[in-house]
Design a protein around this nucleic acid. Structure first.
Lengths: 327, 327
DNA sequence: CGCCACTATGACAACGTTGTCGCCTGACGG
DNA sequence: CCGTCAGGCGACAACGTTGTCATAGTGGCG
């Protein structure tokens, strides 16, 4: 900046004025300064500016489990869209579903003085965020609530959705419905299990825990679970997949099976409608999830001091065929 | 920091020493300082640190077309992985395939003094980056080369892959092969068209430009193109889809068609193997693309001054069935 | 006993910017 | 002709850190 000032024959403060479009600069002077800026390729240092101003850095942090998962990338996209509309940039990080990494990322973001943090939490311990939140960094939890603190949260109707899934399958004649989901340590999986139990109860079919498998969904673990669920004297005739990863791995495991059970997936996913049979899903608007969370965060950033909010977004059954397969 | 210093009864410089694990601090003093840090919830301001140090900010920028597209989210994930291994954070942005947004994002990143930029360029004009690169911000182009400047680039073998696709289709008896791709303004689409022409020539089938449609792939535009390509007295019996978006929209357009042409997609995509028939693809390792670009960027960041490099990653045909459909 | 090396610590400047304040000039009204 | 006022501009401090240098105390050695 001082180089620019020297070249333009003005003080560094005047350069600052020009860069910030402040009035009270003579047009001729401004022109000289702009020319000097062009010539030297000057770009103001936002870090220094933010330091001096002490205010916002114009960035927000987003922590998801894995940006590579289409669910989270759609979420990321929605967050980015809202951030852009508020003139902010997004720092992203993947927690790999581990508490430590989530914590590392969040604290790193705080050290960078992000204006706020959006997080799909991996764990249930968020006490580490209390000092940061007290220091004025708003945090909004997405898809899963905070473990041990009160904070803004945007969720989907996990229980209602799973109840719907079970009800749909039972209404098509199924009485042996299995539930295949991620580890119960994950909030959404645990909630969907509750929904599954409630659905079984409401539909008047018993809850048989031998039909429930909850593990991190790898192709292998799902294939193994499928083998168990479909074997024995009284096998499952329908499966509720607890999320999109489970569903995809389930489809892969069933690809060459002789008898394919009916199925419904919680979470929609690309090409579900083009499979044979098309996969029925409990769909929800991932974009809306991200947008709602981001809007909530920006409201906080702009000073909203109201009580922490909990938003639950609706889900709906999209019947495409795989849920209507007869037992 | 001065609060911490006051509470611990030391100077702010000593706090700095403790925070930075510098030696020459008495253990007892360090303990007092650490206690004060805990108590006050102090977290050092990385912005100020970077300003003072004048060195790296520990961030890199990544500009893609749309993080929501699985192709780019997988790329993002790979970049993030390498960045993490170098202890850096990633700022991401979607250009929406517009030059202006790409430029805005890149310059914003530069103003934030990122250590380097990875970009999937939207346009062909990159002169605006020259001052930044000269000022020491390395830039690596991914998937598409820079327009009018020399810079590091990581690409895939677009031409070779498309030649393979055409060859494969022709070897299964097709002579009316169509090419359906994104706008020719996009480098990869243009290159793949060149590959298509070359493939036609090598395979000894003529190049018929009536069988080529290049437009932004929306569900509607693709459906319309399909109708044209499959109509008339001498319709296409096979289609090469120019990328994953085209392929997905093509599949959707063909879902209810009576006669489905053979097809091969450039880019693999999830569930391609579970469709009926399974979709043959020209696959390439998107993760490797991101990793190679990120590694190249970090080499530059660490001072590699060698001549700009151009890396071309191999592709390979994955024959799953959709390419073997008879004419 | 005097000197030196070494440890532990602090004062101060600087990073690049912007907010505050004050100075100078020229125009305008009385 | 003088006072006032506004426009245009610069000097300086400050944001939160860290690098440099100086200083005080301690122990060992000739």
């Amino acid at each position: 900046m001082s180089d620019v000032a020297r070249l333009a024959g003005v003080s560094i403060k005047t350069v600052s004025r020009v860069v910030n479009d402040e009035p009270a600069v003579h047009p001729d002077t401004a022109e000289r300064v702009i020319a000097a800026i062009e010539q030297l390729g000057f770009r103001r240092n936002l870090g220094a500016r933010n330091l001096r101003r002490g205010s916002t850095t114009g960035t927000i942090g987003l922590i998801v489990e894995d940006v590579g998962n289409p669910f989270y990338s759609e979420l990321t996209r929605a967050v980015e869209k809202i951030a852009t509309s508020y003139g902010r940039q997004v720092l992203t990080g993947s927690s790999d579903e581990t508490r430590e990494r989530e914590r590392e990322l969040a604290l790193e973001f705080c050290a960078r003085r992000v204006d706020g943090i959006l997080v799909v939490p991996a764990g249930m311990q968020h006490g580490y965020l209390v000092p940061e939140m007290r220091a004025g960094t708003p945090v909004v939890f997405i898809d899963r609530p905070a473990g041990d603190i009160v904070a803004d949260t945007v969720l989907v109707d996990n229980i209602g959705g799973t109840v719907q899934a079970v009800t749909h399958l039972v209404s098509h004649g199924h009485r042996r419905v299995a539930f295949l989901a991620d580890s119960p340590d994950i909030y959404t999986a645990a909630e969907r299990l509750r929904g599954f139990r409630e659905g079984c109860a409401r539909a008047g079919i018993g809850y048989d825990e031998r039909l429930v498998v909850m593990r991190t969904p790898t192709p292998e673990s799902v294939a193994e679970a499928v083998k168990t669920l479909l074997a024995g004297p009284d096998p499952a005739t329908a499966v509720v997949a607890g999320n999109n990863r489970v569903a995809v791995n389930l489809l892969r495991a069933l690809a060459h099976a002789e008898r394919r059970p009916a199925m419904i997936s919680f979470d929609d996913f690309e090409l579900a409608d083009l499979l044979d049979p098309p996969v029925s899903v409990i769909a929800h608007d991932v974009g809306a999830l991200g947008e709602a969370a981001a809007e909530l965060l920006f409201a906080r950033i702009q000073g909203d001091q109201s009580a922490p909010r909990k938003v639950v977004l609706p889900v709906h059954l999209v019947a495409r065929g795989s849920g209507e397969v007869a037992p």
